[in-house]
Design a protein around this nucleic acid. Structure first.
Lengths: 209, 209, 209, 209
DNA sequence: GATGAATGAGAGTTCATTCAT
DNA sequence: TATGAATGAACTCTCATTCAT
């Protein structure tokens, strides 16, 4: 498994090997259950080297979160053309998102499950990423319904959408036979139909308590 | 913090105290990071007593999951009157859900985050609970829009809904001035319009790749 | 298993029940691996009662050793008629010994294996019992060969015989299909032939080193 | 006591130190009463190192049994010259045996007492060793008295011999002025005459019960 | 005479982390 | 650059023992 044991590699390469191993172990077992021994072994190096390059378990995990977050953001950005109409942008973004998470399930697990479980220090990076997504979706909604009453309603919708997407990604990764395209289609239908209904004014009014 | 240190209590009472403490610790730190020492201390008893009553960390966690799942289901059921019209039932259910999860964040964390992270045995309990919720919602929509074709993509929708709900719950809990009522309203509108639209066949067609 | 749970029994009876249970558990699992919980449960009483009557694990074990030692000594004494010739006395004694140890394997295990493993305090009782056996055998040898050179040689032979008997008893208890009579016959043949040879002067002289 | 605390030793050396300590503690206290803490302390290392090299208490004990069994066998083999006459071979073997067990009482305790107390896996190793001894002795006798019928009751004789040997070893160790040489002489006379007698058919007939 | 409730102390085991080379 | 050797601290779990009734 792991990589072929080659000695004397440049630091940058070794570091990436360690991060690869760490993401896999952290993603599959969770922060606490992951052991530095296993990570070092999977990376094909000795434990002291891991400490030499990455200082501690916490920093190693942090580096994983940062790397995976950046990769995911880059993938989604690359999938979107801001010149296209909003529904098309949403679709492209969802497709890019589900495709990337499907291709990097351990990375997504680190971001979605593990980073949030383990304390605010790690959550910050993920929260920033998430905020960017919410802003993006909010803008799309606003563009699609220029006259909509903005503010808390739209923010709530965006939150709901992003949360639904996150949950679906984890589900698609662990359920055999579900493709990124299907996950994107499910959410797109759900969201667009819902938004459409809302924008046409079909609001449901709660009863006065 | 904890409870007042009272000695010699009947077993049933002590057991609930232990479960209270365990839910809090498991919910906030996760299964692996939770230590039996801390749980016992928070419960105000010695560690051996926890083992005497609940046998092992695994069984303790399992008991927590079961108790919290039952409490959540009971809360939602209690909020619903089957004699009312479907939309009203959905609203009442959502309100009960958001209220209960807001009142018991640790319990919700145990169910939503921790139980899924920790192995299929626990995930099954939660999955069953969610499936019940999806069936319930689907039935309501079908009653409201008779003749529509239900049953497609149910699992995916469930994931999306729960993800949206969790996201909204977190949003409501952390955004000042947002109540369980408002979170319920947002999701109600989203779900009611979106599901209704889906059942009526209003689909968004993805572009040919 | 155990005894039928009857309440309010006189102390002497309860105590014997406890000793029965303790001998069984100690004999089969050893002193350290035996737990007071298991002993109390097998005796059909609560743990505090065991402590009320027998004070501690050590004293309980000690009581077991004493009781079993006395029973074994009594059984062997009862089997011997001092008026008979020495070889017949040895045979009867061996037969009584092997019969008793076969009928009370747990008791013999307590005496032979466990008591010696666990420190000098318990060994004393067993050592006394053993010494008595050695004296008895020594006397028999002396009677059988009136002119034999007594002293260390005879003492060594008696030691060897008693040790062989102890070892054979444990072996007969754990090997299916070996009866007390067969064990006695094996040892009797070995010992008597050996002694006979010795007494006839067939001594083997070690080479001068 | 223990060894001088020297740091950074090669693995093989440290492992032997650990086994030395383990044999001493296991031999004197028994498997259950021996604690890994005490073994580690006596070996002059920390507990994790013991686990790193020997994995578990069970495996550590197993390693002790193996090592001591091999050492004893080697000592006895080294004492015997197959070119010499059979009685001389038996004498040399017994002398080597008593000398080795006297020099390594803890190792002998591990083999004789502890290994049999603790489960069949370990008993097997010891049983095999004893069987080898019995075969060896039987062959010597057969060579000395050709034409005799061997092979009957071999297991019982082995038990009796080992029991006698153990008893004599303890006697020699605790009785002032008794040497390994004298213990060997006693058993030699006993065994040589007894076995010889048996093979020649001199049986003692028990009375008809 | 008898027990349900409770615990201090210690067991085996694992882990993140560091030294010395 | 890289590692074999080593450990302090913490974990889950068990046990002999006692109190209050």
């Amino acid at each position: 498994m792991g990589s072929v044991k080659t000695k004397r590699m440049p630091r940058a390469v070794r570091e990436q090997q360690m991060l690869d191993a760490a993401v896999q172990i952290f993603g599959r077992r969770g922060y606490m259950a992951a052991s530095m021994d296993d990570i070092a072994e999977l990376a094909g190096v000795s434990k002291p080297l891991v400490y030499l390059y990455l200082n501690s378990k916490d920093e190693l995990f942090s580096a994983c979160v940062r790397r995976e977050a950046r990769a995911l953001i880059a993938a989604v950005r690359a999938g979107i053309d801001p010149a296209l109409p909003p529904d098309r942008q949403l679709w492209d973004g969802l497709l890019a998102f589900f495709t990337h998470t499907a291709d990097h399930p351990d990375g997504w697990s680190v971001l979605h499950v593990q980073a949030r479980t383990h304390g605010d220090a790690f959550a910050a990076e993920v929260t920033a990423m998430r905020a960017e997504a919410v802003v993006f979706v909010t803008r799309l909604i606003a563009e699609a319904a220029p006259g909509a009453h903005a503010g808390r309603d739209v923010a709530g919708l965006a939150e709901a959408l992003v949360g639904a997407a996150e949950s679906l990604a984890a589900w698609a990764n662990t359920t055999p036979g579900v493709t990124a395209r299907q996950a994107a289609a499910t959410l797109m239908n759900f969201a667009w139909a819902g938004l459409g209904g809302l924008l046409e004014g079909r609001l449901w009014s709660p009863p006065r308590a």
